[in-house]
């Protein structure tokens, strides 16, 4: 019973914060609401016994990515006044599309057979030890490759963002 209550509270929070992200006029608010949303998702991860991911999620998203976003917002001096305005028709169309998307996705999920499902008594698959075992045995090479990806992304970001010297 407790877990259901916690789930509903977390789910309501994440949906609400996600909506605020979309509807906030000021980009700073959007960023802050997105951070809230990420925290609730981290809560879901803990509910699912995925402690490792929960921690990584908070560090990477809330800690790194969102800080980067905030800095960009400040760097570009974005605020409510500079926010471009869209016609109402556009907004309605976007909402209808989003709603339709939801409907279609839910419908296709309903038609998907999940198979006979028995709730596992207890799963330790998300523990740091287990994830680490898989990550450093089976997925060692891709894991090492991510460092190459990061180097490439870093260099790319520097090249793109640096002032062009004529």
């Amino acid at each position: 019973m407790n877990s259901q209550i916690i789930f509903f509270i977390l789910a309501a929070l994440s949906i609400m914060s996600a909506l605020f992200v979309v509807f906030s006029k000021n980009p700073i608010y959007s960023v802050i609401w997105l951070i809230v949303c990420f925290f609730t998702i981290a809560g879901h991860y803990i509910m699912l016994n995925a402690q490792f991911l929960a921690i990584v999620h908070i560090i990477v998203y809330a800690g790194a990515i969102m800080v980067l976003m905030l800095f960009t917002v400040m760097l570009l001096n974005l605020n409510k006044a500079t926010e471009p305005h869209k016609p109402l028709l556009y907004k309605v169309a976007a909402m209808v599309s989003g709603g339709l998307m939801l409907l279609v996705l839910l419908a296709s999920m309903r038609s998907t057979e999940l198979g006979p499902y028995a709730a596992p008594a207890y799963s330790e698959s998300g523990f740091v030890q287990n994830v680490g075992m898989v990550l450093f045995t089976e997925f060692l090479l891709p894991f090492e490759m991510t460092s190459v990806l990061f180097i490439a992304a870093m260099i790319g970001a520097v090249v793109l963002a640096k002032k062009e010297i004529h």
């Binding site: 994440s14 949906i15 996600a18 909506l19 992200v21 979309v22 976007a94 909402m95 599309s97 989003g98 709603g99 998307m101 939801l102 996705l105």
Partner: peptide
């Protein structure tokens, strides 16, 4: 739901 909100 979260995905659809993102799309929207």
């Amino acid at each position: 739901i979260l995905f659809s909100i993102g799309v929207m």
